[in-house]
Design a protein around this nucleic acid. Structure first.
Lengths: 324, 324
DNA sequence: TTGTAAGCGTTATCAT
DNA sequence: ATGATAACGCTTACAA
C-alpha cells in the first residue's frame, strides 16, 4: 500500500504530528528531526495524500473548466492558458466538455460541486442555466452572461465588430453580409452583430445577418444563392470564415477580388494554417489571466471590488482576404 | 456551511447510515424512509462530498491527462474524446499541459499522484521519464513509449508513412523530402520516417529528412534553399505541412504544380479550414477509446491480458495538394 | 429495517 | 521541540 504519514513517522521514529509539521513547515522542528523525517519520506517514496488534506482544510485547489470543446482551436487555446495560469497559482483544473448541451452542462456543474472545486470558469455555448444562480461557488464567465451576479470577461466584441465592418466598407464594399452563431445565447458576442448593424446603418447600408448553428452550415450556400451580388462577408469566427471562403471557391468566386472575407478570433492555429485570413484577434491569454484573477478574488473572499464586466481590447489583423 | 450527511439525517429524522444507504442504494430501506431522506436532501440542496467519499473508498474516479498543449488541434481533439469517453465511464479528468517540458511533466506526475488519480494517460513530447517506471499507477501512453511495461496506443505510423510516400511517388515525384519532429523522442511516430526511408529506397530514390523543433521553423526555408529542385514534401504533421505550403508560395512555387505536399493527422480543424491539404488521417476517437479501455483494464486489475502495443489503422486522404 | 462506532489520511489544538 | 487526540464527511462492519 501507499505509505502514509504514520509510516513515515514510524521509520523516522517520531510522531505523525512532527511529520506533518515538517511537511508544512509549521512550528519549531530541530534540524535533526527534520532530516530524519526527510530521509524517511525519501526512503518510503512518500507523497502526501491531497484528498485527505483537502477534506480537512476544506479546500481542494481544484478549478472546474466548462467549455464546449477543446477540439475548437479558440477554446483549445483558451483552456491551455487557463490551465497554465491556474497551475502557476497552485491550482489544478478539472476539464469539462459540455458540447454546448444544457443537460451535460448541468451534470458537470453538479459533479464539480460534489468534487468540492474551489471555483468554476465557464464559457459554454448555452442559454442561461439557473443553477449558476443558486450555487454559492465562485464563478467567472468568459464571453457569456451566466447570471446577473457573475462576473464576465470578454474581449471588446462591439469594437471588434466595428473594426471588421469598417474595414470591409473602407475597402470599397457596400453589400456586406454578416454571419453569426445562434442569437439566442446570452453572450457578449452578440455585440459583434450589433456593431455590424450600427456601422452599416451609419453608412446608409442595409445590414443583413445570417445565423448558423454549425461552422459548415448549409446556410452559407443559401447566403450566396440569395445574394449573388454580395461583396463582403464578416463571419463571427474564423472557422465560419474559412467555410465561407471554400463555398466561394466552389462557386468560382475569387477571394478577395470578388468577395472579401473577414473572420474573428485569430487563434494561433488559424494564423499558422491560414495566415491569409483577415480577422479580429482576441487577446486570449489576457482573457484567461483576467478570468483567473477574478476567480481568485472571489475564492479569497474579496467580493466587493468585483467588476461585473471586464472588456479587453481586440486587434484588427488585415491580410489577404480583405485586400482591394 | 454546506450540508453534510448528518444534517440530512437530522432533517429526515434518521441516522447518517440510513442516509448513506439511500445515497448508495445499499441494503434494505423502507420506501417511507427513502422518501423522507430524499425530501431532506432536496430541502437542504445536499450534494455528497466526493472528497470524503474518495478518502474512505480509496478511489477518486480521477484520471490525469498529460499532453503538450490543448492549443494544438490534434491534442485538442484527442483530449476532447478522452474526456468524453472518461466521463461516460464515470471518470473525471485532470488536465495537464506539459508543453513538452520534462520538468513540467515530472511536476505534473507528482501532483497527480498526490491527488490520488486512479490512472494517467500521457502523450507528451518528451524523452523517457524514469518516474513512469517507478510509479505503480495504471498508465497508458499515446504515440509514446513511456517505459518497457507501459502499454502504448498509436495509429499505424509505419503504414501512414508508406501511404504518404507512395502517393507522392505514384504522382510522379522522385525528389521527395520528409520533414519530421525531433528524432530523439522515443515515439512510434518515428516510424513515419522509417517508412518514408524504406519506401524511397525500395524505389531506388534517395531519402532525405529534415528535422524541425517548431512547426514554423526556419529549417523549412533552408530545405527549399538547399533543394531548389524538390518535387514533393511529406510533412509529419499538418501544421508543418501548411507552413511548407506557405513557404512555397513565398517562393512563387505553385502547390501542387511545382511541389506536392502531404501532411499527417487529419484533425477536424485542419480538414475544415484547409480541406485542400492531402494528409494521413489518424483515428483519433478510436485512439482515445482504446487508451481508456486499456487504462480501465489496469484500474480493474486485469493486468494479464494487456497488449503492450496497440496499433490502429490510418486512412489516406488525397486532396488538392498532391494532385498531378 | 435501522443505528452505533470505527476508520480513511491529514491537520490543528492543546498538552508536555 | 514534540506528541496525543479530535476532527474533516463519508462508508461499512457489527449490533440491535
Amino acid at each position: 500500500m501507499k505509505p502514509k504519514i504514520a509510516d513515515v513517522a514510524n521509520v523516522a521514529g517520531v510522531s505523525p504530528t512532527t511529520v506533518s509539521r515538517v511537511l508544512n513547515d509549521r512550528g519549531y522542528i530541530s534540524e535533526e528531526t527534520r532530516k530524519k523525517v526527510h530521509d524517511a519520506m525519501k526512503e518510503l517514496k512518500y507523497y502526501p495524500n491531497e484528498v485527505a488534506r483537502s477534506l480537512y482544510i476544506n479546500k481542494t485547489f481544484l478549478i472546474g473548466l466548462i467549455f464546449p470543446t477543446t477540439s475548437n482551436p479558440f477554446y483549445g487555446q483558451l483552456i491551455f492558458h487557463l490551465e497554465n495560469i491556474a497551475s502557476s497559482l497552485g491550482y489544478k483544473v478539472l476539464l469539462c466538455n459540455s458540447e454546448g448541451r444544457e443537460d451535460k452542462e448541468k451534470e458537470y456543474l453538479e459533479m464539480l460541486q460534489r468534487n468540492q472545486v474551489d471555483g468554476i470558469i465557464a464559457g459554454a455555448h448555452n442559454k442561461e442555466i439557473e443553477e449558476y444562480e443558486s450555487t454559492n461557488l465562485p464563478v467567472v464567465g468568459i464571453d457569456r452572461n451566466l447570471s446577473s451576479k457573475i462576473p464576465v470577461v470578454s474581449s471588446d466584441n462591439y469594437h471588434g465588430g466595428q473594426l471588421a465592418t469598417e474595414l470591409l466598407i473602407r475597402q470599397g464594399c457596400q453589400k456586406v453580409i454578416h454571419i453569426n452563431g445562434p442569437s439566442d445565447l446570452d453572450t457578449p458576442a452578440n455585440l459583434r452583430r450589433k456593431a455590424y448593424e450600427d456601422v452599416m446603418r451609419a453608412h446608409d447600408l442595409k445590414p443583413l445577418t445570417y445565423e448558423v448553428e454549425e461552422t459548415d452550415s448549409p446556410v452559407i450556400g443559401q447566403l450566396f444563392d440569395e445574394n449573388p451580388q454580395v461583396e463582403a462577408i464578416f463571419a463571427s469566427d474564423d472557422l465560419i470564415a474559412s467555410n465561407v471562403i471554400q463555398e466561394a471557391k466552389r462557386r468560382n468566386l475569387s477571394v478577395p477580388d470578388n468577395v472579401k472575407v473577414i473572420g474573428y478570433d485569430g487563434t494561433q492555429t488559424i494564423r499558422s494554417i491560414f495566415p491569409e485570413l483577415s480577422t479580429v484577434e482576441q487577446p486570449i491569454e489576457n482573457i484567461a489571466q483576467k478570468a483567473l484573477e477574478l476567480l481568485m478574488k472571489q475564492i479569497d473572499g474579496d467580493d466587493e471590488s468585483l467588476p461585473l464586466e471586464t472588456i479587453l481590447p481586440v486587434r484588427l489583423i488585415e491580410s489577404e482576404t480583405t485586400r482591394v
